[in-house]
Amino acid sequence: MEFTVQQIADLLQGTVEGDNQIKVSTLAKIEEAQAGALAFLSNPKYEPFLYSTQGSAVIVSDKLEVKKPVSAALIRVSDPYSSFSTLLHYYHTALLASKTGVEEPCHMGAESQIGENHYRGAFSYIGNNCRIGQNVRIFPQVYIGDNVRIGDNTTIFAGAKLYTNTEVGSNCTIHAGAVLGSDGFGFAPQPDGTYKAIPQIGNVVLEDEVSIGANATIDCATMGATRIRKGTKIDNLVQIAHNVEVGQNTVIASQTGISGSTKIGDNCVIAGQVGIVGHISIANKTTVGAQSGVSKSVKETGTIIQGSPAFDYKQNLRAMTVFRKLPELQREVELLKAKSED
């Protein structure tokens, strides 16, 4: 794909300084860009590369004052980072749109339906009585069980597994190896010390515009639904247990585990390697720092917590300062103890 600088500026609602008819065909980092590449400058730390880049065009802030001659054409916008992200989105969408048709061998079960302009990769499997929307991309070796519902414009990458009765909204992305609808971890202890499996008969529901990272797992509900609400983004290697509810536009980073029946609010930020116990609630706009252990409900909107067990972020920082000084404090106590014994 090849575009003129002016076409890109029109897309981003920006203005051009320099030759607006230069053509670009690829995207690159500003420090690595070569002829034909488009880059962007957002962080002032990288401004020196603006004067040495070999790229054909650079997206920059409309407030940037250029201090030296620049060989590349400049596309001036209000927010270079967001504009470049928008461009990446269009580029990625165009690449996905190029995948159409049905590769063989693949399987679609009885009474299943799929919309127009779809793609089904080789060795993909669709069970019985499924309803799949338009412009859906199903990559090779995807498994879709019986009675699954998938909305328009959703992409499911290679090797993902959607168990029976899973529901996925429109404009969702499910990355390679993700598993939706596997059994929740439910076992009843028996008098003889063994465990009896509790049947998990619920499902998983993803609302619109949800992203699920590679090798993430979302368990089906014991009854009802494990629900991920609109706009939420879940990173690779996240575990979400049965009957969890995650609110709208929440982000959850890698290696986080959320135990059963916990409710996460809207617009929360949960950093990497966080553990959250079951049957608690996390208020809207809560931020949980990395490697925290959340053992009780968070009730106030906008709370920031850190640590294990997690508590107020600023108090945690003060506690860590004291913790680092404990060896020194211990020596002082031992010296005072020795003096008192003299």
Rank of each mutant, 00 (worst) to 15 (best):
I174M: 02
R137V: 13
G272A: 03
I22P: 11
L64V: 03
H92K: 15
V142I: 01
A241Q: 02
N236V: 07
V238C: 09
R227K: 15
R131T: 13
F3R: 14
I144F: 08
D219Q: 02
E103W: 03
A160F: 06
V204M: 04
E32G: 10
Q113V: 11
K63G: 13
K339A: 03
L50I: 04
E209I: 10
E17D: 14
K161M: 01
K161V: 09
K67L: 00
H279R: 07
R120Q: 12
Q134K: 15
E17R: 12
L317H: 14
V148I: 08
S25C: 14
T166I: 01
P309C: 00
N153F: 04
Y81L: 08
C172V: 09
Q6D: 12
I138Y: 03
E31K: 15
G247K: 04
V322M: 10
G145V: 05
A72H: 04
H175Y: 11
V204D: 06
G260N: 06
R149S: 15
Y195M: 04
G213H: 03
D342E: 15
V179F: 04
E31H: 14
V60Q: 01
N316A: 13
E65R: 13
L38W: 02
S281W: 03
A57S: 09
G169M: 02
N203A: 04
I174P: 11
I30V: 00
P309W: 03
G184R: 04
V5Q: 09
T26N: 15
V77R: 06
Y81H: 14
T262L: 05
I22N: 15
A319F: 11
T262Q: 09
A33H: 05
Y163W: 08
K68V: 06
V5E: 08
V246A: 01
H279I: 04
A122I: 00
I280M: 02
A319G: 14
T286F: 04
L38I: 07
C130S: 06
I228S: 05
F49T: 07
F3Q: 13
D312R: 09
A310Y: 01
G289W: 01
V77C: 03
V5W: 05
K339C: 03
A338T: 13
V102G: 06
A57L: 00
Q141E: 14
E341D: 12
G115Q: 02
S281D: 12
G260W: 07
G18C: 00
K196C: 10
N117D: 07
N267M: 09
I258H: 00
L50Q: 03
D312M: 09
E111D: 15
I59R: 04
G186V: 07
D266L: 00
N316F: 13
Q255A: 07
T287S: 09
I282A: 06
V210S: 07
G115E: 01
A9G: 11
R120I: 11
